[in-house]
């Protein structure tokens, strides 16, 4: 959204179609967040429930292991924390102000 000038009406695709796939990645929704998930990787069993349920594909995974949260896109909805198995409880939601105050802008 922020890159370059905004196009005039003659240069936009008719009907507001988006002709390029996958560009949602360039739209940062992380600044909508008031709470953020913090994952305790010591407790995490890598069951992938949070990855499966996250509506913004914001759970970072590598080699079938949960690595953390993509805070550029995580809206802080808390679904990951809610689906994390009761016995594990590896994800807790932390107030964004508290996280920012702690200077933890990135996990």
């Amino acid at each position: 959204m922020s890159e370059g000038a905004k196009r005039g009406w003659r240069d936009l695709p008719a009907g507001a179609l988006i002709l390029e796939a996958g560009n949602a990645e360039r739209y940062f929704t992380g600044d909508w967040r008031t709470q953020r998930p913090v994952i305790d990787l010591q407790k995490c069993t890598h069951c992938m429930l949070c990855w499966f349920f996250c509506p913004d594909s914001a759970i970072r995974v590598s080699q079938a292991k949960v690595e953390g949260v993509d805070l550029d896109h995580c809206k802080g909805c808390g679904i990951c924390a809610a689906v994390c198995p009761v016995k594990i409880r590896a994800i807790s939601m932390v107030e964004e102000t508290q996280a920012l105050r702690a200077g933890k802008d990135r996990e």
């Binding site: 005039g8 936009l12 796939a21």
Partner: peptide
């Protein structure tokens, strides 16, 4: 392609 995305005040008028 994507049909029917949310178009906010910055593009709605152009469409």
């Amino acid at each position: 392609v994507t049909y029917g995305p949310l178009v906010l005040p910055d593009y709605y008028t152009e469409i």
